[in-house]
Every structure is written in C-alpha cells, then in structure tokens.
C-alpha cells in the first residue's frame, strides 16, 4: 500500500504525480484545520468553516483570472482597481433602485468595465509588447485615477438585493449562494483550461509564445482574451464584494492583488507560465483565507500575522517552486 502510493507520487504520469502540487496544498489545509481545531475547537465549527469558504470565494474569483494570466507567463496587477471601479460603478449606477432594468444595466456595466480594463492591458501586452507587470501596473494607476475622478473621493449607493443574496444569502438557509457560484466558476475554469482550444493555447503560449505562434495559434488574440477574462472575474468579485459589505469604498480591492498572486503560486501554478491549473488555485485561496482566520483566532497581532504569512509563502515556495540550475 505505502509502496504503491510512493510510486504513484513519484510518477509524473500517474494521477497523483500530475496533481502533486494541488495535493500538497490541500494536505496543508488539512494540517492547518487539525492544528487550529486542537487549539481552538470553535474554529472547526460548521458555521465558521462555511463562513471562511464564502470569504475565500471572493479571493478565488479574482484568482481565476489571475491563474489564466499567470499561465500565459504574465501577471495582472490591475485587479485591485478594476475590481474597485466595477464595484463602485455597480452601486452608483443602481443607486438603491429596485427596477430590474436598472439593476441589469448596472450589472452589465460593471462586468463590462472590468473586461474593458483587461482588453486595454491585453492590447498593451500582446500588441505593444509592454511587459505585463508595467502594462497592468499602469492600467491599475489609471483605474485608481478614474475611480477618484468618478466618485470625487466618496463612493455612493447600496448594493441591490440580488448581490446581497449572492454574497451572503443561503439556499434553504444552509448552502451559501456564493459557494454555488464558486463551484460553477470552478467547473467553467476547468472546462476552459482542460477541454477548450482556447485553454490549450493558454498553456502553449505560457510554455513558448513563439512556438505557439509558429503552430498557428492566434497568440495576440488569445492574450487579449486572457487579460479580458481576468478583468471580467475582477468585475465579478467587485459585485460580490459590494453585496458582501452592502456598500463600496475606496481601496476595497487593494488586498486582492498580492493575495490572488499568492493563491495561484501556492496552488502550484508556475509563475513563469505554462504549467498549473485552477484546482490548485482553489486550494491556494482556501489556504490563505483559513490561515488568516487561524492566525486571527489564535490572537496574533496583525503585525505577526503578516510576518507568518510571508514566511509560510516562502516555505511553500521551497516545497515546490524551485527552478533548475543555470547551466547554459
């Protein structure tokens, strides 16, 4: 039994070998649950775990787009303010109205604004060849500016009932709608990445853009699509977060830039692109949220939380992030 498992683990072709890194991440989640469960029995209560999963949904949504961008070998720093602007556009357009048409209009507008931010970053990266770090950093600063000009510093409006239900409502009082949404998004992500031509092109570009181009993949169009998708998921997260806190404020997306990157990397996706997937990112997002909650419950000050958080990411990187030695 043990020998069989070890052989499966070492074999890159077997199911265990292929999902090694997500399995490590899920294993770490279990370890974390056991340790904090022993220290603080309330941590393992159904209510708390469900609550943490809902919080992880927001991170997981942003990290869905981030996963795709990182798979192509890029990085998206613009999620913070494309999320924030989409959320503010959402509440300000609807402005507390109950009219279904207004609500639908606000929702479409919010999702569209996120997507457009992604399209612009994508054009910069794919056509102008600006490094993704700079293109998305620039777009982020522009969106911060747009938000400030648009709101004059004080965002208005409340989230409509459907957004509140989506973020905090539960089916029959048990199953949160947010988790249903996340499950759907996960299924969609896995379907796109594993079974669609687009998804295979994403991996091909991440491995070698020139080789992908020479084999006939529309590299530039795919890249623009990937960044647009990242903007779209940032917009979705904006709507969810607006529903969760019932209003919008400046800076609500700031934490999500670094956390989404960390979730992707902890989930085993290579920061250089071409290898990984969304299943690992889901584990990464849950792990980050649970870790923060566990540190909070253990009564560690925010300063200590940050130190441990950084150290744990480093540790995870050492477990499976090392690249080959330079030889040539």
């Amino acid at each position: 039994m043990y020998d069989t498992l070890r052989r499966l683990w070492a074999d890159d072709e077997s199911w265990m070998g292929r999902y090694r890194t997500p399995l490590i991440a899920f294993g770490l989640i279990l370890v974390l649950l056991v340790i904090s469960g022993i220290r603080q029995p309330g941590f393992l209560s159904f209510g708390n775990l469900r609550q943490q999963l809902v919080v992880a949904t927001f991170l997981g949504t942003v990290a869905a787009g981030q996963t795709m961008v990182i798979l192509t070998g890029g990085i998206d720093l613009s999620v913070a303010w494309s999320l924030n602007f989409a959320a503010i556009l959402f509440t300000q357009t609807i402005g507390g109205s109950d009219d279904p048409a207004t609500i639908a209009f606000g929702t479409v507008l919010a999702l569209l604004s996120g997507t457009m931010v992604g399209v612009f970053s994508g054009i910069g990266v794919a056509i102008l060849k600006i490094p993704s770090l700079v293109a998305t950093l620039g777009m982020n600063t522009v969106m911060l500016g747009v938000t400030l000009v648009y709101t004059k510093g004080s965002p208005q409006g409340l989230a409509p009932a459907f957004a509140r239900d989506l973020a905090i409502g539960r089916i029959w009082g048990v199953l949160p709608w947010a988790l249903v949404f996340w499950a759907g998004l996960t299924a969609l992500m896995i379907a796109i990445l594993k079974y669609s031509v687009f998804g295979r092109r994403v991996y091909a570009i991440g491995n070698n853009p020139r080789a992908a181009f020479l084999s006939g993949a529309p590299v530039r169009l795919t890249l623009i699509g990937v960044y647009a998708f990242s903007g779209l998921t940032a917009g979705m997260a904006g709507i969810l977060l607006a529903g969760y806190s019932n209003n919008t404020y400046l800076g609500m997306g700031d934490a999500y830039v670094l956390q989404s990157i960390a979730a992707v990397v902890i989930g085993g996706t290579s920061i250089l692109g071409g290898a990984g997937g969304y299943g690992g990112t889901v584990a990464g997002a849950i792990l980050i949220v649970l870790l923060q909650n566990a540190l909070q419950v253990a009564g560690i000050r925010p300063a200590g939380q940050q130190i441990l958080y950084g150290l744990i990411i480093l540790l995870m990187l050492f477990v499976y992030g090392r690249s080959a030695k330079v030889r040539e």
């Binding site: 000050r301 940050q306 480093l314």
Partner: peptide, 27 residues
C-alpha cells in the same frame, strides 16, 4: 540569498519578504 541560492522567482520571493518586513515594521 533566497533568490540566488533558493533558485526561486524574485517577484514572488520579494512579495513574501515584503510581507515579513512590513510585519516587523508594525512591531
């Protein structure tokens, strides 16, 4: 040391250490 001898990507290493540094700063 971590980037060179750990053979890890600088972008994610310095992201992690930045969290550590600002935690110490808050203390």
């Amino acid at each position: 040391l971590i980037v060179a001898y750990g053979r890890l990507q600088p972008i994610i290493v310095t992201l992690a250490t930045s969290s550590v540094f600002s935690g110490i700063a808050l203390y």
